[in-house]
Design a protein around this nucleic acid. Structure first.
Length: 273
DNA sequence: CTGAGCACCTGAGGGC
DNA sequence: TGCCCTCAGGTGCTCA
């Protein structure tokens, strides 16, 4: 479920909270996630200082002083939250990170599309999870000069290209739909039919919608919550996602829904060409 | 190489 | 209540 703004919200809260903490133990209740959790996780992070909490794409990266990094991805249904160790375990609480001083952080994921794994910090860039990833959309590298040539070479729908992590990372179904609305481009338009000026508007819209959502603590459409189990507030600002049949807030036309490669697309037929 | 389709897995919600 | 269907903030494989 979570896209870049939700992961970034979690990253910021984790950064503020765990740099002063050390783990006392890690319990694996179920290890068969998207990739199996390596057993060594139970040892290598115990009693080691935490140096940083970073994000790459939708992956959380927790760097430890012993030069190992804990990698966490939430998939569609994953949650990472702090709680008391006494709290009754839920069916899908798969990993328990126990901190000295009594707090516990739980990784919970009903669909198990997420993952928890480890890597030597230095070897992260070449890791198979990361070595094919495209540009970070909030970086200065993401603009029309970089993205327009990519669009020119692709006949796939512009929305598919936006959601292709080999090209741009972090933009999932909600924010792809929203950014395309803000830039006036229909999701199904072929990428090589988008002008350079439209690509410029699209890049700006992607940055805008991601930053606005981060300001609001992410979007809670169904069940996203942060590490304090608090929902985000950005859903009240959504213009098209989940609004099929409702009226466009700009022109009053009825928002349409279609399906592209098994994902729902929402657009205003008047505002988006 | 690209793009479409589908698989991975579970739970929620609607219709009957 | 129960069953069956559809749908869901992601990713990566296979096939044409």
């Amino acid at each position: 479920m979570p896209e870049l703004p939700e992961i970034e919200t979690i990253r910021k809260k984790l950064f503020a909270r765990i740099l002063t903490l050390k783990m006392s133990s890690i319990e694996l209740r179920r290890a068969d996630l998207r990739i199996p959790i390596p057993i060594q996780i139970k040892k290598i992070f115990v009693d080691v200082a935490i140096q940083n909490v970073r994000r790459r794409s939708k992956y959380l990266l927790i760097d430890f002083e012993n030069l190992w990094t804990l990698i966490i991805h939430l998939g569609m249904s994953g949650r990472l939250f702090f709680t008391s160790p006494e709290r009754v375990l839920a069916k899908h609480d798969h990993v328990l990170f126990n901190f000295k001083g009594g707090k516990q952080m739980r990784f919970c994921d009903s669909r198990r599309f997420g993952l928890v794994t480890v890597c030597k910090t230095q070897k992260l860039p070449g890791h198979e999870l990361f070595n094919h990833l495209g540009v970070e959309p909030l970086s200065d590298d993401f603009d029309e000069n970089q993205f327009y040539p990519i669009c020119q070479k692709s006949v796939s729908p512009i929305k598919n290209l936006l959601m292709n992590a080999q090209r741009v990372v972090g933009v999932g179904n909600i924010y792809a739909n929203e950014a395309l609305f803000l830039s006036g481009i229909r999701p199904q338009r072929r990428a090589n039919r988008v002008s350079k000026n439209e690509v410029k508007k699209l890049c700006q819209a992607v940055k805008h919608v991601l930053l606005k959502s981060i300001e609001s603590g992410g979007t809670t459409f169904r069940d996203y919550v942060d590490v304090d189990e608090k929902p985000g507030l950005h859903q009240i600002q959504l213009k098209v996602y989940g609004r099929a049949g409702a009226l466009c807030t700009v022109c009053g036309f009825v928002i349409q829904k279609t399906v592209q490669t098994n994902r729902s697309s929402f657009f205003c037929p008047k505002c988006q060409i």
